[in-house]
Design a protein around this nucleic acid. Structure first.
Length: 275
DNA sequence: CTTGGGACCTGGCTGC
DNA sequence: TGCAGCCAGGTCCCAA
């Protein structure tokens, strides 16, 4: 599941191949892939355009084009971007041919991924909350946003308007690292807990990027290699296993209909932060 | 307005 | 062995 560290890795590894190149041919197999315009409009709008730079906002990958417009890709659950794959299988939703002869294939087993071609990137990503790894993101900013929501802390971390880029895996890892029970209300966290959570969010996401993302499901990097971030996970996807810190059995509950793993020993509902 | 729950999508897994 | 039914989760949409 591509979250911030996975999309950041894709951006970093794709950039050397894509930046400075133009689209020479675009094939969209699945019209449902395109959001806000027709597949033909996207195809015509891309051909001949040069990629000035690659960016990321939350879980969105942004191709900044030479005419000022933006191609935006969201991989959702199972989308992958593959560089020169050996074969274009039936999960391929679109193929982008580049002026250096390479081709980029958008493949998506569950067909939930989306692309946009827009004049202004903000029409798609404008509603997102702050980037958790930006210098401008502070504990105070996080606290102010959390204090406005009477919802479980886990649900708050998944809300892209509160903080951008955190998904199910890294939300569980950040809450575990901060020793905060996922059902604690966001507006009930103490300033100390918010401060701890802030640092844990940044540490967990930073480590994820350092390990090139987590290949727990279909995620692979553009050249086909796996990420290894999942080998550092303490609780995510580990319901029923012993906690690596205290040995308690990791519990799995549903929060906002999302599978949520936490350690009842390290994250008791009534606990405060220990750091 | 805020919050919570369901829909969307499809391969893999479980259980009968 | 076969197959129905459930599960995974990012985001949008609707109802309370």
């Amino acid at each position: 599941m591509p979250e911030l560290p996975e999309v950041e890795t894709i951006k970093n590894e794709l950039s050397p191949w894509v930046v400075g190149q133009s689209f020479t041919q675009v094939t969209i197999f699945d019209a449902e892939l395109v959001c806000g315009s027709s597949a033909e409009e996207v195809r015509r709008g891309l051909i001949g355009q040069k990629v000035e730079s690659l960016g990321r906002r939350g879980k969105y990958l942004i191709f900044h084009l030479s005419n000022g417009r933006s191609l935006i890709i969201h991989l959702r659950m199972t989308g992958v971007l593959l560089l020169n794959p050996k074969e274009v299988d039936h999960y391929a939703r679109a193929v982008f041919h580049l002026s250096n002869g390479h081709r980029l294939v958008f493949s998506d087993l569950r067909r939930l991924g989306l692309i946009w071609l827009v004049d202004y990137a903000n029409t798609v990503v404008g509603k997102l909350g702050p980037e958790p790894l930006d210098e401008s993101f502070t504990p105070g900013a996080l606290g102010q946003r959390l204090s406005r929501h009477h919802i479980p802390a886990k649900a708050a971390l998944l809300d892209q308007c509160i903080v951008a880029g955190i998904g199910n895996m890294y939300a569980d890892e950040a809450l575990f690292a901060a020793r905060i029970h996922p059902l604690r209300k966001a507006d009930a966290l103490s300033p100390e807990e918010v401060q701890t959570l802030y640092h844990c969010i940044r540490r967990v996401l930073g480590a994820g990027i350092g390990s090139k993302g987590a290949s727990v499901d279909t995620y692979v990097r553009p050249e086909g290699e796996l990420g290894t971030a999942h080998s550092d996970f303490k609780v995510a996807h580990k319901g029923g296993e012993p906690c690596p810190v205290c040995g308690s059995t990791i519990e799995r509950v549903l929060v906002q209909n999302r599978g949520t793993c936490f350690c009842p020993g390290c994250q008791p509902f009534g606990s405060g932060p220990l750091i």
